[in-house]
């Protein structure tokens, strides 16, 4: 089976600093891969390169066999890869449903003018991520951090992705909210969604992923099953601080 997403020898330099150093991996349909590593390891930089927000210095990115390395973010999202952000970036003065609408609306200006928003779909998506009916007309300022993450998930899902990149999806959530988002991810996996996940919440991450890659200072230090990677001495010393 051909991989959905292929990252080949990705290098990103910021002047003298190499933030991503020769990172490669394949992601198959329905698979879930965790990227773990300490703060500043380069995980989010990899996400930004996959989405086209940062242009890689070397290497290439392929989606469904098509090279997307040269495409702008909007064009990549059109090819059904989408991401959430470490710090949620909602539209402050729009309601929850309008925030979701931005992800779901067509890209053509004429269609934006002539097509009515699909309110049922927006409500369904909001409910699916666990945003209560009472929150639908609220603005982001009235939401908790947990609800902001759910909103971010919903807006990303509204772009109709087949591959989702989740960046620190559990940060700032209560135990109940972590369980809710985990259930959602498992449900989406069962429906065939492919995930690349970054999280520092390792216990929450464990049941959600098949494999993991540990990186430190932009370089891969371990790869394998989640348990194997966590037991790797290099990971223990660099990531968990154990000898």
């Amino acid at each position: 089976m051909k991989p959905v997403l292929q990252v080949k020898n990705l290098v990103k330099r910021f002047g003298a600093l190499t933030a991503t150093n020769d990172i490669s991996f394949d992601l198959h349909e329905g698979e879930s891969l965790a990227l773990i590593g300490p703060n500043g390891a380069g995980k989010t930089t990899i996400f930004s390169q996959i989405m086209g927000e940062l242009r890689q210095s070397e290497g290439s990115i392929h989606l469904y066999d098509e090279e997307i390395s040269h495409l702008k973010p909007a064009a990549r999202i059109k090819r059904q890869v989408s991401r959430t952000y470490q710090v949620p970036r909602p539209f402050a003065e729009l309601t929850v449903l309008e925030n979701i609408r931005i992800g779901h609306m067509p890209n053509s200006i004429w269609s934006m003018l002539t097509q009515q928003p699909d309110l049922d779909y927006e409500r369904e998506l909001a409910n699916k991520v666990g945003l209560a009916e009472a929150d639908h007309q609220r603005t982001p300022a009235e939401l908790s951090m947990g609800d902001l993450r759910k909103l971010e998930m919903a807006r990303t899902m509204a772009t109709d992705p087949k591959v989702m990149l989740l960046d620190e999806v559990f940060a700032g959530l209560t135990t109940a909210e972590v369980a809710q988002i985990s259930d959602l991810i498992l449900q989406m996996r069962a429906d065939g969604m492919t995930f690349l996940v970054v999280s520092h919440d390792l216990p929450a991450l464990k049941p959600l992923v098949d494999t993991a890659i540990a990186i430190n200072q932009g370089q891969e230090i371990a790869r394998g099953s989640f348990n194997q990677v966590l037991a790797d001495p290099a990971v223990l010393s660099s990531y968990l601080g154990e000898v």
């Binding site: 989408s82 909602p90 539209f91 003065e93 729009l94 309008e98 931005i102 609306m105």
Partner: peptide, 17 residues
């Protein structure tokens, strides 16, 4: 809605495809 969103978070509009 999209134009208002553009004024609030241009990056997120792009990030929404």
């Amino acid at each position: 809605t999209a134009l208002s969103a553009l004024g609030m978070q241009e990056e997120s509009v792009e990030g929404s495809g």
